[in-house]
Design a protein around this nucleic acid. Sequence first.
DNA 1: TTTACATATACCAATTATAGTCCAAATGAT
DNA 2: ATCATTTGGACTATAATTGGTATATGTAAA
Lengths: 232, 232
Amino acid sequence: MNSQNNNTHLRATSGAAGIFNGLRERIVNGDYNFNERLPSERDLALKFAVARGTVRAALEQLEQAGLVVRKFGSGTFVSYNTNPTQEDIAEETSPLELIETRLAIEPHIVKLVVSNANNREIRKLKESLEKAMLSRRNPNDFSKADEEFHLTLAHCSQNPLLIWIYQRINDIRSHTQWSHRKNNILTSNKIDLYNKQHEALLDAIKRRDAEGASNIMTAHLIQAKKDLLGPG
Amino acid sequence: MNSQNNNTHLRATSGAAGIFNGLRERIVNGDYNFNERLPSERDLALKFAVARGTVRAALEQLEQAGLVVRKFGSGTFVSYNTNPTQEDIAEETSPLELIETRLAIEPHIVKLVVSNANNREIRKLKESLEKAMLSRRNPNDFSKADEEFHLTLAHCSQNPLLIWIYQRINDIRSHTQWSHRKNNILTSNKIDLYNKQHEALLDAIKRRDAEGASNIMTAHLIQAKKDLLGPG
DNA sequence: TTTACATATACCAATTATAGTCCAAATGAT
DNA sequence: ATCATTTGGACTATAATTGGTATATGTAAA
């Protein structure tokens, strides 16, 4: 068929389309990672043994396809993300979706807590709760104490995978865009309500009432969900 | 020797981005520990054979990423606490703890599926289920098809965070120590039973019966838990 | 031929790296 | 307490690198 070129071993098709395909494959394969800089146009021209104009034609197609971004004076960067990192997840997760996720796992966590937690850990829960009570005037402090309380709960489950998952959720919680909304939602009254719910939860755990504790957690999160949607 | 290329092996990309990546890797790998002081900017410039300004540019990025803290007149210090990696978690998570975690989130996922999934996705679920039915003779194939089915369920929830979490769970599922036990557990009879449960689940989803679907998933996972403990 | 594409070259403008200098905070030895 | 040294912070002028543009030429297919 076509044996005009003997340097085509680098690419299946010839010309700019060949460079395009070659680079695209490397990008989607992850040979070039997200945000990584490609070699300069001049280098690529050497590597592929073509003229720089040809490389540029291919890069223009890649740019149009949204796989790369070219920056004047700087370089050509991969803008294609093969597997999203936690950062990406944090950015595309809405507060509602976050609550929904917590609603999935936290009620089950407290069930495990009731069956697995020992006294030492329950004491840590109590300490964490008291800390949250002290910061009823400061939304930021309360928010931190609240995160800590729920994370301590995860630890009490004794399940390393659940703990790890909850750490990731907490990362996203503190990352998310809506931090600025906190001050609107977390009025003193709300903080008091949340603290009361936490107290009731701890009580149920002490009584070893798995179903009760789980229900309180569900109610707690549904309340948080309502508060989130309400003023929005 | 050729001092131009002698230092290139230290970093994959050139310039400040290269220094950044090189240092980041050393930090997350634990080559530099928490609170440890990095070499001075001038030393780093020598080591990497670049100008001090380049090192500073990289350090600024590291600081922005929260990996280091720079103290005027004192030095640059690692502020990154090595979190356990996913590998570590996979190694210390037992099959029982894995099931327990799935028991936490999957019943809730199916509830979300009932309220969020569209017909196109339900069709994908059906395809995935049929694939699992075809592989009733081969435990390995079934296991893969099963993972895919449950992951498709997560996708149907339309919640990026839940999807991401379930991907991590699936990573661990395929990593875990117990893979070799599969052949003992996954007899043809068990596979048929699981497939029937999947079928019933899909049915409930089609009927938009959230509670029913969730209960089926719970029963399904409790069955899997029993099977896991039984012959062990 | 015409047409489309690749090559080769030169230059432009934005960005980044280099190699200095000086400053001020922290540190350690005396 | 003092002082010399080391450290990160700030700034500059210069050089090198990079993508952007333009032009002339060559080549192969329509």
